[in-house]
Amino acid sequence: MTTMNTGSQGGTMRAAVYRRFGGPDVVRIEQVPKPSPGTGEVLVKVHATTVSAADYRSRTKDVPKGVKLLSSLTLGFVRPRLRILGMDIAGVVEAVGPGVSAFRPGDEVMAMLGGRFGGHAEYVTVSQDSAITRKPANLSFEDAATVVFGGITARAFLDQATLTASASVLVNGASGAVGSAAVQLAHLAGAHVTAVTSGGNAGLVRSLGADRVIDYTTADFTREADRYDIVVDCVGNVEFGRLEPLIKPGGALLSVIADLAGVVQARSRSRRTGKRITAGNVPFTSEQLAQVARLAGAGLFQPVVDRTFDLSDIADAHRYVDTGRKRGNVVIRVATAPVQRTFVESRSSHTTRRPPA
Rank of each mutant, 00 (worst) to 15 (best):
R276Y: 00
M112G: 09
L188V: 04
P105G: 06
M4R: 13
R269A: 01
A182L: 09
K65M: 14
H318M: 10
F141G: 10
S255G: 12
S130E: 07
A335Q: 11
V183T: 02
A90F: 04
Y320N: 03
Q128A: 06
T49K: 10
V263W: 06
L170W: 04
A16G: 06
V32T: 08
V100N: 09
T336L: 14
V193R: 11
S346D: 15
R353H: 11
D25Y: 03
F103C: 07
A181T: 06
V339M: 08
R227A: 06
V124P: 11
A202F: 05
V193G: 01
R227D: 04
L289P: 00
E345S: 09
L253Q: 07
P136G: 10
F240E: 10
V17H: 10
P64V: 10
E142A: 14
S72D: 07
V321T: 13
P64D: 07
T222C: 07
V96I: 14
V205C: 05
V334P: 07
G23K: 09
S268D: 11
L300G: 01
L185H: 01
A315R: 02
G173P: 05
L163F: 11
G328H: 06
V238M: 09
F21Q: 10
G179Y: 06
R333K: 13
Q288F: 09
D322L: 03
D159Q: 13
K45T: 09
T342I: 02
V26C: 03
Q128E: 15
V171P: 00
R104C: 03
P35H: 12
T194P: 02
G114S: 12
T164R: 14
R104L: 12
L163Y: 07
P249E: 02
S168F: 09
E287D: 13
M87K: 11
A16N: 12
T194S: 07
A252T: 10
V63N: 01
R134E: 00
G150F: 10
T194G: 05
F343H: 12
A145T: 14
M13P: 08
P136S: 04
K34L: 14
F149M: 13
G23Y: 04
T133W: 01
S198H: 11
S348D: 11
R267M: 12
F284Y: 12
D129K: 14
G23A: 14
L170T: 02
V93H: 05
R347Y: 11
V63C: 00
D88E: 15
S71D: 05
V96G: 03
S286E: 14
P245D: 09
H318F: 15
S127F: 00
Q31F: 01
A225P: 06
P37F: 10
